[in-house]
Design a protein around this nucleic acid. Sequence first.
RNA 1: CGGGGCGUGGCGCAGCCGGUAGCGCGCUAGCUUUGGGAGCUAGAGGUCCCCAGUUCGAGUCUGGGCGCCCCGACCA
Length: 483
Amino acid sequence: MSKRDEKAITPKSEDFDRWYVETVLRAELADYTPVGGCMVVRPYGWALWERTRDALDGMIKATGHENMQFPLFIPESLLAKEAEHVEGFAPEVAWVTHGGSKELEERLAVRPTSETIICTLYRDWLQSWRDLPVLINQWCNVVRWEKRTRLFLRTMEFWWQEGHTFHETHAEAAEEVERMLGCYRALAEDWLAMAVVAGRKTESERFAGAEYTVSIEAIMSDGLALQSGTSHHLGQNFTRAYDIAVTGRDNTLQHPHQTSWGLSTRIIGAVIMAHGDDRGLVLPPRVAPVQVIVVPITRSNDPEGGAAVDAAVEHIERATADTVRLRVDRRDGIRPGEKYAHWELRGVPLRVVLGAKDLADGNVTVVRRVDGAQQVLPLDGLEARLPGLLDEAQATIRARSEALLAERSREVSDLDGLRQAFATEPVFANAPFCNRPECEDRVKAAVHAVTVRCLRADRRAEGAPCLACGQPAEHIALIARAY
RNA sequence: CGGGGCGUGGCGCAGCCGGUAGCGCGCUAGCUUUGGGAGCUAGAGGUCCCCAGUUCGAGUCUGGGCGCCCCGACCA
């Protein structure tokens, strides 16, 4: 929490829990480095990213893409060819000016994204329509010199995947754009248990150099939106600028149609803020680094019960070795309550409390992180039930997120209605929208800090009057405050 | 680039009118504890952001520098 001018934070003060949660999560997930704005990701945070990354990587490969790697440095002359693109990224490019002590003749950009270098290389690699489609993906880090940073959401260096494809036709590229947004949606919904809205970006939020951009917008627990994955149709903007041409089926030279799509470590910030509560993280079991934490409880005056607990712990550990990411908290000298709090803070989906009292009847207590639901189950056969319990926890988290989205959604028909909708709390407002820049400005001016997040893919206005100008509108806009 | 605020053990802070640095958490060791964030005891840990000045004496006063954070504009 942001300190100063507030009173000292002590264990007795009201702010202690908030401070403690934040301090511990920074110690466990990620923190800023001494270089302002850069992020260091700690093992627990990185494990969460790895599981997320692996899930997405599987989908990317399943849709026919291959991974490869492009260079970190991009010569200035290559970066500068697509006018709108370079204009959009120029303010946030980091430059390398020296190699060792020698000043370089041409500065090198640290990649903020790789369209330019990829286009440069593929110019020579593409000859014929038979070389298409090109379906490639890169996992890497990129740098954008941000003025203001927020951990995970906007850091100067971040990790992501960027997919890049070239296609014979505009329509085929358009299908690709939708297909990959669909992967992001599946990742968000099925793996990360987040409720999202998919749609097309307005002109002002379109990727620099793209024909159009589609995104998924996730809802955070405070009602704010977070753009969590984007997919761009680049048309022939780059292939023209970079002079990429193939001989077509009709024996004429054609510029291929291109797409790019990316999803970054920002998604980890989304998971934290979508599901977390006052006691810390709530992680979806499918990506949680630790899915089940076992807390053994023994008494020093009950060696017999202690031995039984030890045996039970070893049994469950062995029985789940290949099926569940289960860990036992064997730390000595720490009381159970502290262990509960410790793992709740880290978002572990299930806690198995294994104490002599329950065990005397052959039982254990299982507690679910997301809602505290508690049940007493027989130790016997527990290993077989855990996967199902994890699935239930996953579904519960997802349902809670969907319920929040439904609860915070509003239907709005004019600017007054928009103001009323935002009067008490941040909401996801849906309204007919003509998609003209001047109307977007009116929307932004009507309510502090709101933006048109996207034009919903799943709904049409069918001529209903635009909320800002009253003209017949095509789109339903999602209007929200965003991170 | 505008508007605020702050630099004191690992973290969060106190330190008035100048007198040689303190509190809580954390950490280390020991004992006692263990079904919801333990207790006691004993320890370790600080060029008080930097430089210059005033002074017998500067964390404190003066001047200059550096760094960081928050709120805006910009962005995944």
